[in-house]
Design a protein around this nucleic acid. Structure first.
Lengths: 336, 336
DNA sequence: TTATTTATTGAAAGCGCTGTCAAATGTCGA
DNA sequence: TCGACATTTGACAGCGCTTTCAATAAATAA
C-alpha cells in the first residue's frame, strides 16, 4: 500500500536511480527531470522507507537517551535539552529509562538492543564494575553522563560538582559561620553523592572542622524520606545550630517542611540548603540556597558530543566538564 | 564488520533460514540444530539488524510521543507513564516536541516523517482547523492526547476537566462562599482553557453569579506572567474578596507570590487555586488547592490504545476519558 | 514393498533503497 | 565530420532479513 520509490519513478517516467538521486541531492539531476520527479513525489505523498535506507546507509538518525529514572525535573530538563539539540541537528531522540528491577546488564542490553540507534547517551547513577566492563564493550558511539568514567574509553559530560559543593560548604562555613554541617546524600554508591562527599570532607578539613559520622546520612533523593529523617533529627540539629546540606532540592524541601511542622524556623533556627536548582528551589518558602546544575546543557552537550563522534569516529574521547554554581537564596540565612 | 545472520549460519553449519527460524521461534527447529545455532549466536554476539527486519516485517516496535513542549512536570510525567508502559509492552519510545517556531504543518510532518514508527501519540494544545485536517490524513495509528477530537477518526485519551473544574468552582462558591471568581487561563485557542472556561460559565450560571469579562485573563501558563498579572491585580482582587482560579499550578504559584510580596495573605485575604496537581502544588506555601490530573496515566493509556490498535487495526476509534479530581489544600482557605 | 504423510532443512525471491557502472546523449575543438 | 569528453540516465547488484516453496529424510499406512 505505501508508495515506494518505484511508484514515483513510474509516475515521473524515470528510473528509480534518478528518483534516489533527487532525494539525496547528490549528483546533479537535470533541472527538468528533477522538477518532474519532485512533482511526482509531492502528488504521491512519497516518503522514503527508513528501513530500506537504513539498511544501505547503516544510519537511522536516531539517538538514544538512557536515564536512571524519568522522575523529577532533573531528568526532564536533560531530555528537553537533548531533544532540542537533536532536532537542530536533524536527529530523533529515543528515550529509555532503567527501571527499578533492572540490574547492570539489563542496562547494557537496553542500550545495545537498539542496534538501530546511531549513538547513545547514558546516565547511570550507580556504576558498579560489572556495568563498567559492560559499557566498555559497547561499540556504538556512546557518551556517558555524569558518572565515574575513569578508564572508560567513551566520551563523557560531567558536572564539576566538587567545585559547586565546595562553594556551598565554604559559604556555609565562612559566610554563615556554621560550625557543624549535616550531610544528607543519596546511596553510598551514587556517583553524585561520592563526589559531593569528597568535597564535604576536603572543605571541612580545610576549615579544620571535624566531621562526625553521625552527621552523614544516605537516603534516596526523595522528599518523603527526607521529611521523615527531618522529623526525627531537626530539633537536635537546630539546637546545635547546625546547617543541613541536602544533595538535591527535593530532600532539602522535605527537611524544611519537617522543620516547619515542628515549629522550627528556617533559616533562623536551622539553615537548609539543596542542590540542582530545580523549579522547586524557587517554589519553597523560604526559597532554597542551592547549587545550580546546568541540566538542559547536559542533554544538549551529550547530543553534541555524540554527533561530533558520528562525524569523526577517530577523534579521541572527550570529557566535557560543565560548571555548577552556588545560588544563594533565603534558606541558609542572610549572607554577609 | 557487524556479524550478520550469514555468519551465524556458517558457524552453526546451517542455512540462514534455519537461523531465522530459531530467532523467531516459529516452525519448530530440531532440538539439536537449535542448540547449535543458539551457541553460535551467543559466541558471535549476534544481534539481528533492525533495518533488515523492519524492511520485511514493516514493524519497528517504536512508538512516537509528540508533545507541545517538554517543559515542566506535566509533560515529564506523561513521558514517564508512556515510557514505562511501552517498555512493558516491548516497545521503544521516541520523543519529539513541537518547538515554538513550528506551525501546524510542522507538527504533522514531525509526526509523519517518522515513517519508521509503528504508532504515534500526539498532544497538541492549540488545534486549528488546518492541523485538524492534516491529522485526519495520517495513516499511521495515532492517538490524540487531551485535545478537541470531535470529528477526528483516531483514538484519543482526554481528561474530563469540565467535571474537575466544575468541582473546583463549586467548592469555591458553595463551601468557601466566594461571590467572585477570577479566571486566569491560557490562550483562548487552548483546548484546556476552552474546557475549563466552559465549566466556569456553566457553574457560575448555575450559582447565579454574573461573570465580568474583566475577570477573565488569558496568559501563557507560566509563573512569570502570572506573577506580573498578580502584581497589578492582586490588591483589587483581595479588596473584593475574590477567589482566583489559575489554569495550572505554575500560574497559581506566581499569583500567590505576587500577593505575598504585596503583603496580602493567602488564603486569608485572597484564595488562589491551581490545576494539575503537580509537585509544585505541594511545595508552595500555602499548599495549593488544585485539581488532580492523572498525568502519567495519560501517557500509559496512550501507549495502551496505540498497542491495541496495532493488534487490531479494525477496531472502532476509542475515546478514553480519564477523571480529574478536586484536591483541597490550604490555598483556598479552610473548607466547611 | 510401495505410496503417503510428517518433520526438518535449504534455495531463492523479494522488502525499498543506494551506489556502481556503463550506456546514451550532447558539446566542442580540430 | 569525427573523436574526446562531460552530462545525464538506467540496469542491476547488493544491504540483512523473512518467508514461501521445494527437497530430502524419516516414519507410517496400504
Amino acid at each position: 500500500m505505501p508508495v515506494s520509490i518505484e511508484d514515483v519513478a513510474k509516475k515521473a517516467d524515470v528510473s528509480i536511480s534518478t528518483v534516489s538521486r533527487v532525494l539525496n541531492r547528490r549528483n546533479i539531476v537535470n533541472e527538468k527531470t528533477r522538477k518532474r520527479v519532485e512533482i511526482a513525489i509531492d502528488e504521491l505523498g512519497y516518503r522514503p522507507n527508513v528501513f530500506a535506507r537504513g539498511l544501505m546507509l547503516r544510519r537511522s538518525n536516531i539517538l538514544a537517551l538512557v536515564l536512571p529514572d524519568l522522575h523529577g525535573e532533573f531528568y526532564s530538563e536533560i531530555i528537553r535539552g537533548a531533544n532540542l539539540r537533536a532536532r537542530e541537528l536533524g536527529y530523533q531522540l529515543m528515550i529509555s529509562s532503567v527501571v527499578a528491577s533492572d540490574d547492570g546488564s539489563t542496562v547494557l542490553s537496553a542500550v545495545t538492543d537498539h542496534s538501530l540507534v546511531d549513538g547513545i547517551a547514558v546516565m547511570i547513577s550507580e556504576v558498579d564494575s560489572q556495568t563498567r566492563t559492560d559499557l566498555a564493550k559497547v561499540k556504538t558511539p556512546l557518551v556517558i553522563l555524569d558518572s565515574d568514567v575513569e578508564g572508560v574509553k567513551h566520551d563523557s559530560v560531567v558536572i564539576d560538582q566538587r567545585q559547586g559543593a565546595a562553594a556551598m560548604f565554604r559559604h556555609l562555613i565562612y559566610n554563615q559561620g556554621t560550625k557543624r554541617i549535616v550531610f544528607v546524600g543519596g546511596l553510598v554508591t551514587n556517583f553524585d553523592t561520592i563526589e559531593r562527599l569528597a568535597a564535604f570532607h576536603s572543605t571541612m578539613d580545610e576549615a579544620n572542622i571535624p566531621i562526625s559520622s553521625n552527621d552523614i546520612f544516605h537516603l534516596d533523593y526523595n522528599y518523603q524520606t527526607a521529611f521523615e529523617l527531618g522529623s526525627k533529627q531537626v530539633r537536635e540539629w537546630a539546637r546545635s545550630r547546625a546547617s543541613v546540606f541536602a544533595a538535591n532540592d527535593e530532600m532539602a524541601a522535605g527537611i524544611i517542611d519537617a522543620a516547619i511542622e515542628l515549629g522550627i524556623s528556617v533559616p533562623d533556627q536551622l539553615a537548609v540548603v539543596g542542590f540542582d536548582d530545580t523549579r522547586i528551589a524557587q517554589m519553597t518558602r523560604p526559597r532554597l540556597t542551592t547549587v545550580h546544575v546546568p541540566m538542559s546543557s547536559m542533554g544538549s552537550s551529550a547530543v553534541d558530543l555524540l554527533c561530533q563522534r558520528l562525524d569523526d569516529p577517530q577523534r579521541p574521547p572527550t570529557k566535557l566538564t560543565l560548571q555548577s554554581e552556588l545560588v544563594v537564596r533565603e534558606s541558609c540565612g542572610s549572607d554577609f
